[in-house]
Amino acid sequence: MDQTIFVLLAQDGVTNGAIYTLLALALVMVFAVTRIILIPQGEFLAYGGLTMATLEAGSLPGTLWVLLGAGAVAFAMDLATARGGGRRLPGRSLARSAAWNLGYPLALAALLTQLPLAGLPLAAKALLALALVVPLGPMMYRIAFQPVAEAPVLVLLIVAVAVHLAMVGVGLLVFGPEGSRTTPFSDAQFEVGAMQVGGHTLAVIGASLALIVALYLFFDRTLYGKALRATAVNRNGARLMGISPALAGRLTFLLAAFVGALSGLLFAPMTTVYYDSGFLVGLKGFVAAIIGGLGSYPLAAAGAVMVGLLESFSSFWTSAFKDVLVFTLIIPVLLWRSLASHHVEEEE
């Protein structure tokens, strides 16, 4: 392997690593706040990329139907809770639920049918794609997770796997079996010393860094960010401050969907995205998150870059085994984690 190839592979690894970092951070965040291992994180990525591709093709994305449907179900569940005695849901929160779950999707539908989709600038399409995919996050929390929010981690995990399956199926339904690749955000090529750097590569790395900084600021500076951290640190303490687990859950899923959909927009120009592509990409984010012990953001980020590099270099030497290598990487990591923890835990 000469230096050019080395640089190329490293660049590739870091770019993919940036995407895995975003996913890993979202996974760590969701787990910390809600104890849910968000297997469907990758689906947000696939939905984001494919929604963008449909918009580029100038047609109405099927995501809209998913949004309308999920919103209707979420609202129906809120309504049933409000009617069904037990904990009373005040009228105001029901109105808010109607606005978000019914009003917003309908408004977006009206907007989409009016706009000349094919002619829009790239940034506008990206915004529309986010507007379509991101609200699916809180809706997913409301429909699938909120009713079992207090269940053990393992039950939440199985629910997450079930949601993943359903979303892959829905993805096939609305996007079809063909894959798509979207236009890069930049075609420019830069010479940095002796190496060629693609504009999109820079866009991916730049956007990832910007998002990481934005997330940091959100968690460090804003009240809602602090509320999420508080929930992660001490759920009981947070409840006593009036931070409800449902609110924290919806907010976290909103962020996770945002991170996922944005990674999709960044990912889709690099490779062809299929309706079921999200899972494998998401799992690589997982490997990274596990390297960080599902608790440390910096370690997860480092793990993600490591996974990206490992993947890119192994694809050079032995492309058939690159996935085997990436997923086998987790075994020594787990071994190291198991040696670090040696007390009997009650699993409930």
Binding site: I290, T328, I331, L334, S341, E347
Partner: peptide
Amino acid sequence: RLSGHYLPLGTMAWGIS
């Protein structure tokens, strides 16, 4: 020897592998 959620994630990883 890992606590609850690592095991299923680990099984996914070696399952795919």
